[in-house]
Design a protein around this nucleic acid. Sequence first.
DNA 1: CTATGGCACGGATT
DNA 2: AATCCGTGCCATAG
Length: 470
Amino acid sequence: MLPAQRAIPRIRQTATAHLTQTMNLLGLSRAEQGEFLNSVLASNPALELTKPTRCPTCRRALYLPGPCPVCHPAREGPIVFLATPPGRGRDESGEENLPEPAQPERLSDFLLRQIGPELSPEERSVANYLIARLDENGLMPESSAEAARYLHQPLAVVEKVLHAIQRCDPPGIGATSPIEALLIQVEQLAETHDVPQAVRPIILEHLEPLAHGEFGLIARALSLPRPEVEAAAKFIRLNLTPYPGRTFLGHDHQPTAPDPELYHEAEMVFRLAPNAAEGPLIVEVYAPLVGRLRVNPEIRTLVKTLSGAERENWEGKVEEAALVEKCLRQSQVTVLRLAAILAEEQRAFILGTDRELIPMTRARIAARLEVHESTISRAVSRKRAALPSGRIVPLSKFFDRSLSVRDVVRSIIAEENRPLTDTEVAGMLKERGIPVARRTVAKYRAMEGILPAALRRTQRAQRSAALSAS
DNA sequence: CTATGGCACGGATT
DNA sequence: AATCCGTGCCATAG
């Protein structure tokens, strides 16, 4: 099976070759857009950067024509406008270089800080890529070979960097499978602690029965006394996790005080005006260079004085530059309109919890904005939104049909007095006006990482045992 | 017999 | 056209 084609190689190509068709900027993340625009800017002298105008009252930088949307909110509804990301160094105009905000460290930065010093610049960019590919559990879903091919780097380099990542905290990060994550953790623990002998073979070969608590089965397979297996299981449960990424998120990604500058990584930031819980939502859409990249008018007039091959050459450049400018503006207008709709329709979800998400589809938004469905798909893909709670979520979360129901399932089980079976949960959902099949409840429960009722029983028993022991 | 997970189908969504 | 999602059916474990 071929891996899905990715955007960056395609972009490198178009940036250096002829830009004849409209470009797909919409489908790119903010970082990719920035990379692309910088390369176009460098390769086309007919393009120039201009400075944004400033709102006379609030001094905010304005990237689109018209009055300041914050000081002059046009009408009812959310306030949506373009802004440059508060990144460092990126802004060639020298404006808007905000100081590094104090913020809880993100996992990606935490990892880079650990391995950065021992890597060459080239390896560091490999590390950047690999870390960005880690899934929500901190595991690496992509093979080294795929990454190497994508990065155009030797396999050995990729593997070296990956191994460096795997030696980082939290232990097991960057492993390619839950099993590998567990093994890495065991090795690290073994340096300072005694590890029950049964632990390694259980991880390697009997993980499945372990999950079901089938200690007898394992004991027989390994020819070990059952208590030893149980001790090993307890060790695994207490000390190891197949999802190393979650341990970091656990203490770092908790809802934090909303810090307006926290949002390096999102392309859309939702917030409320201070002291205005009832006020309109304010949405900043981060867009590198937008509104400031334009065809240099001097070159435009200059071209008219040229002739022959030289003139043709420059006309081509100007045409290309105009196209870039147009595509860029077009894609940004679409994202802004999307942002406005999200803020309007999902206000409760943005300010509140998953449960308040209202089901919505890309197709419906497309109809409302009178654009093609694929346009909305691209506008949503590879982008993230920062919510006032401090959470950063992929935009696709806004279109998750089952999110709010899963949230209800979670709370039903959290508040249960005795372990409820899936059928019972399904019944309770029906009472609340959410008819879902029993099978579906099972899937939602699994998605939330909740064990089946029978196992929640033993989990309870173990928890209370541990509690009374301590 | 009950609870659950695997598989596969069909319709919706991208 | 490809993928995702909810669901029903069936096998299996307890």
